[in-house]
Amino acid sequence: MFKLKSIKYIVMSTLLSTIIFFASCEKDITVDIPESDPKIAIEGYISPGQPAYVFLSRTTSFFAPTDSLSLIASAIKGATVTISDGIITDTLVEVLPSIGYLYVSTQVLGQVGSSYVLNISTQEGEFASAITTIRPPVALDSVWFYAQPELDSLGWAWGRLSDPAAPGDHYRWFAKRLGKDDDFIAPLGSVSEDKFFNGLTFDFAYNRGQKPNSNEEDDNNEESGWFKQGDTIVVKFTSITRESFLFWRSAESQTASNGNPFGTPAPLKSNITGGIGIWEGFSFTIDTIYAN
């Protein structure tokens, strides 16, 4: 949305690559990174009318081999996971006890304005906890598609937002093409805060995000990053907490600046005590764009 940082990266990188049109070379190297102690990695969320989903795994040493087996091995099994909205304390159920990983609430469903405390204790004796709230949803005024004239049928998804008068709103944008994406995808720069546009009405645009390591054809050709005429684009516009905003901003900054000399190492800004990751409540609105 307001992508000061990404603009800077784009420009600085372009500047560099334009000038250094001499071969700058790249080679594979071996770096010696010491083994690290595993930490609990948590990704959990709750939204209105939905149960809480909590994914539990452990961090691994940087170069540890990774295949589906080792991923399963890094999942946490048999942990006691509870959430509490202050009235009910619900113990989450392990969906696949043989694997672990995903824990779901059965009694507590999300409600706008409520706060939720998450507590985790593992069989190995680790503890982690966090708290979040669900902020009220903010609907977009309108959404549309605009094809870049130079690009024929490709373009971005646009939205118009009227930010509420009170400060403290944070947003995250997702989109999914019906029949093409299985899932909502957040592009880089998906989070924003109203510090710069509190109470304003304005238009913004997003490019199309993609799954990490995607091998889809349109993520690897000239359509990469673009929506296309004919797409049915479902937009999920979420209203998130400040903690979520800080977390996802740091996470996206890692993805964007991986090794980039213009960036600094961005540690993840986690809201979890005793672990790393995010426990977030959010509400959302859904809009559909028929791109034509």
Binding site: K39, A41, T60, L102, P212
Partner: peptide, 27 residues
């Protein structure tokens, strides 16, 4: 060290394992 996160996803998609390994993040 590293971890993988998917971002909030549909459970159905996860069951289909469409999300692969998710996005890698560093500590």
């Amino acid at each position: 060290s590293r971890l993988f996160l998917n971002g909030p996803v549909d459970l159905a998609a996860l069951a289909n394992d469409q999300s692969g390994y998710g996005q890698i993040y560093y500590e």
